[in-house]
Design a protein around this nucleic acid. Structure first.
Length: 164
DNA sequence: GCCAACGTTGGC
DNA sequence: GCCAACGTTGGC
């Protein structure tokens, strides 16, 4: 996807995780505050991970199935798309026998924690912010776990997170 | 290639 | 825990 026209132009994304599986606190406590974002098993999300997400891009960390479900902080991409090895491991819950090492189906990126918001921005609050009507996260039935965020959306959300 | 059945996601 | 929305699978 050509949403970037130059190497300088930073991309913005939103990644979902259930905090009971992996929370932003887990990311903060991880070695180098970094993790590989494994387990994505959806083709549209895979395409973003493999083709579009670049080193230095910024990430909203979103807690789904949470109380409340909310954007809880910011991370950055430190390694671009590479094969998700958990798909090769029969012991792994995300094992996929159709993904081969010489032509992997599934990809992941590495992300590093930058900031946890003092106060999470819940879904309800986001819905009431002007300018976010078209945000992928807020569309009805939207389940995509890796989503593009526009620069305008990024700025509205991060300003709100910092009390502006 | 259609579409019913099934499995998953995720808000509520 | 419920269930609507969505994605995938497989019979035909």
């Amino acid at each position: 996807m050509a949403n970037k026209t130059s190497a300088q132009e930073k991309g913005y994304w939103l990644l979902k995780s259930e905090p009971s599986a992996f929370s932003i606190t887990d990311l903060e406590k991880a070695a180098k505050k970094t993790t590989h974002w494994d387990g994505v098993r959806n083709f549209q999300a895979r395409n973003f991970l493999r083709d579009s997400i670049k080193k230095g891009d910024q990430i909203f960390f979103y807690h789904s199935n949470s109380e409340p479900s909310a954007i809880v902080g910011i991370a950055q991409v430190v390694k671009e798309g590479y094969p998700d090895h958990t798909a090769f491991d029969p012991e792994d819950p995300h094992f996929d026998p159709k993904s081969k090492k010489d032509s992997p189906t599934w990809y992941m990126v590495d992300v590093q924690h930058l900031e946890t918001f003092p106060k999470p921005l819940g879904l309800e609050e986001l819905r009431h912010l002007p300018g976010l009507k078209n945000m992928v996260l807020l569309q009805k039935g939207s389940r995509l776990s890796v989503q593009p965020v526009t620069k305008a959306e990024w700025e509205i959300v991060s300003k709100k997170a910092h009390g502006k």
